[in-house]
Computed example of a mutant assay.
Amino acid sequence: MMTNLTCDVAIIGAGTAGLAAERSARRNGAKTLLIDEGFGGTTCASVGCMPSKLLIAAGNAMHAVDQAKVFGVDASAKVDGIAVMARVRKERDAFVAGVEKSIDKLPNEVKIEARAKFAGATILALSDGRQVHAKSVVIATGSSPAIPDMFDVVRGRVLTNESIFELKDLPGSIGVIGAGALGLELAQAMARLGVETMVFDMGETIGGLKDPHVAEAYHAILSREMPILLGVELKAEPEGGGVALSGRVRSRAASASTICSSRRAGHRGSRTSGSRRPGSRSMSTGCPTMILTRCNVAARRSSSRAMRITIARYCTRRRRRA
């Protein structure tokens, strides 16, 4: 016989939003159930803003040395890529452990480790065979990177925000495809750490900015540190141990901006019928990033006067590296 559980508020997903929703509802007297398939911590702590800020801090440290001469300070430094990434993971793991401790403090009767799908407006069918009848349901399943089909041929060389922090060493070069905040900040951090970096975007603006004057100024500032190409249609092919990218810039905005890969709706503790398969959505400015490693960049003009971009394998020295 199927067991029924009842509550005032059922929350699907134990990420940052789900944990906050559960605590708020329980604090206000509601009976809650928090459903997650793994209770593995939050995106922010494990693969999001926290580890990315650690990488940014390392990049800023090197950038400060590079700019020291402006202030009359003669300084030099070398980047130890292995040490940089080891520190990122060490501190990231401490953040995740802190989140896990907070989850462990939740009442056991609140936590349900299972997947959920809707069997009615406020009825959830769990993967363990039980049903949850709630007055209200909060969907806080987050999202996950969706790699576009055009990159299937080089999928083994693709990094997303969920895998980049696992690199043992900084790559020799990267092509960053994704012009949201995460794509831009990771690209800038890598560039400042001596990684040959180039950013691409199918969109016509940078960072999802709406004001054209602000976007133009931001574009110009970031372009001092790395090439950023907008309005690019890309094709990827394996080349040696790396990736070759070729593409056509559709507009005149060919000097700087960002490229985004789309993200599909998350499934933290949930199953959504009719969801898109990875890569089925088009890329658009403002989405999280996709990164192709070990790319060296060269650009030339084609006979049609459209910019052509070719990225060949990076195989020699890295700038300012130990």
Rank of each mutant, 00 (worst) to 15 (best):
Ile311Ser: 13
Gly13Leu: 09
Thr205Asn: 06
Phe39Leu: 05
Ile103Gln: 11
Pro278Asn: 12
Lys168Val: 01
Met198Trp: 00
Leu159Thr: 03
Ile206Ser: 09
Lys69Tyr: 06
Leu229Asp: 00
Leu106Asn: 07
Glu204Ile: 02
Asp80Gln: 01
Gly72Lys: 03
Ile56Val: 15
Ala30Val: 00
Leu186Ser: 09
Lys210Asn: 11
Pro288Cys: 09
Ile309Lys: 04
Leu222Phe: 11
Ala254Gly: 06
Ala97Leu: 09
Phe71Leu: 14
Ala10Tyr: 01
Asp66Leu: 03
Gly129Arg: 07
Lys135Gln: 10
Leu184Met: 15
Gly48Asp: 09
Arg313Asn: 08
Met202Thr: 15
His63Pro: 00
Ile35Asp: 06
Val96Cys: 12
Lys168Arg: 03
Met198Gly: 06
Gly120Leu: 02
Ala61Gly: 01
Met190Gly: 07
Lys90Gly: 00
Met283Glu: 14
Ile311Gln: 04
Arg320Thr: 05
Arg271Phe: 04
Ala322Glu: 02
Val79Ala: 01
Gly81Leu: 04
Gly274Arg: 09
Arg252Cys: 00
Ala299Trp: 10
Ser251Gly: 11
Cys7Asp: 04
Arg115Asn: 13
Lys111Ala: 07
Ala114Tyr: 10
Asn161Gln: 13
Gln188Ser: 15
Glu100His: 09
Thr310His: 11
Arg277Gly: 04
Pro212Val: 10
Ile221Pro: 03
Val9Ala: 05
Gln67Met: 11
Leu182Asn: 13
Ser246His: 03
Leu124Ile: 12
Thr16Pro: 01
Asp66Ala: 04
Val110Arg: 07
Glu204His: 05
Gly178Glu: 05
Arg305Glu: 13
Ser102Trp: 02
Gln131Lys: 14
Pro278Ala: 13
Met85Lys: 01
Ile82Thr: 06
Ser76Thr: 15
Glu100Gly: 06
Ala86Phe: 00
Gly129Val: 04
Ile11Pro: 06
Val73Arg: 07
Ala45Gly: 14
Ala134Ser: 12
Ala125Gly: 06
Val214Asp: 02
Ala179Cys: 10
Gly72Phe: 06
Lys53Asn: 10
Arg294Ala: 14
Cys295Trp: 02
Ala119Val: 04
Val73Lys: 08
Met202Cys: 12
Ala10Phe: 03
Glu216Arg: 15
Arg157Trp: 02
Ala68Leu: 04
Ser127Ile: 12
Val249Ala: 15
Ser24Phe: 07
Thr272Asn: 10
Val99Phe: 05
Ile177Gln: 02
Ala61Asn: 02
Ala254Glu: 11
Asp128His: 05
Ile139Tyr: 03
Arg268Glu: 07
Gly279Asn: 13
Ile112Gly: 05
Asp36Glu: 08
